[in-house]
């Protein structure tokens, strides 16, 4: 294969449309030809940039407007109940884990002493109004549950080190956030 043939074949390589024989030939050529290697890298860079082009969101009344222009009555679709439930559950779990992580942050950063210093948080009703006290208690409950999850993670990892356990718990939180975000597929508006 010469450079002229390679120049055309590179497009096929980018598009993954070459057969085995062509693939071997172009790869061999690119490996031994600095110019074609540079061209391949350039094309690959362009293609990868283009692959990241976002899908744009239409205006909220798009469907309704199409129906109006067609002279048809529009009845909006409803989201299936299971999807709404899954989204609500995902969001709740994400918020729960993130709250727990935030509550655990002082201990993570400053060690066990910081935790002891904040023992008063176990009895917030003594110094705070009932509403704020309830919020703090919820945070503590989340923190304790996280501690339990972290212990389980530590046991699974055969490690009792707090940083390891918290890292695993943090990872769990990130996974939950990621799964939830997949439900809310991000769109780009113009």
């Amino acid at each position: 294969m010469n450079c002229h043939q390679a120049y055309e074949a590179l497009q096929g390589l980018i598009d993954n449309s070459l057969n085995k024989k062509e693939l071997v030939e172009i790869k061999t050529h690119v490996r031994n030809c600095p110019a074609c290697k540079a061209e391949y890298r350039a094309l690959k860079m362009v293609a990868e940039g283009l692959d990241r082009m976002p899908l744009y969101e239409t205006s909220p009344g798009f469907n309704k407007e199409v129906f109006r222009r067609l002279g048809l009555e529009y009845k909006p679709q409803r989201r299936p109940a299971w999807q709404s439930l899954a989204m609500a559950a995902g969001l709740s779990l994400s918020v729960f884990w993130l709250t727990a992580l935030a509550a655990a942050l002082p201990t993570l950063l400053m060690g066990a002493k910081a935790y002891k210093l904040t023992q008063w948080l176990h009895h917030p009703e003594l110094i705070l109004p009932s509403f704020q006290s309830a919020i703090l208690k919820s945070g503590l409950a989340a923190y304790q549950t996280l501690g339990f999850a972290a212990k389980v993670a530590g046991w699974l990892l055969k490690s009792s080190a707090l940083p390891t356990q918290m890292a695993v718990a943090g990872l769990l939180a990130l996974v939950l956030v990621f799964i939830t975000m997949r439900f809310f597929r991000p769109q780009t508006s113009l």
Partner: peptide, 24 residues
């Protein structure tokens, strides 16, 4: 397609291109 020469300088400089807004 015409037979075109490869411009090494041009190709190498493309390596720096990863900015999405630039692609747009």
């Amino acid at each position: 397609l015409q037979d075109e020469c490869f411009d090494q300088t041009l190709m190498d400089s493309i390596d720096a291109l990863s900015d999405k807004s630039m692609i747009d």
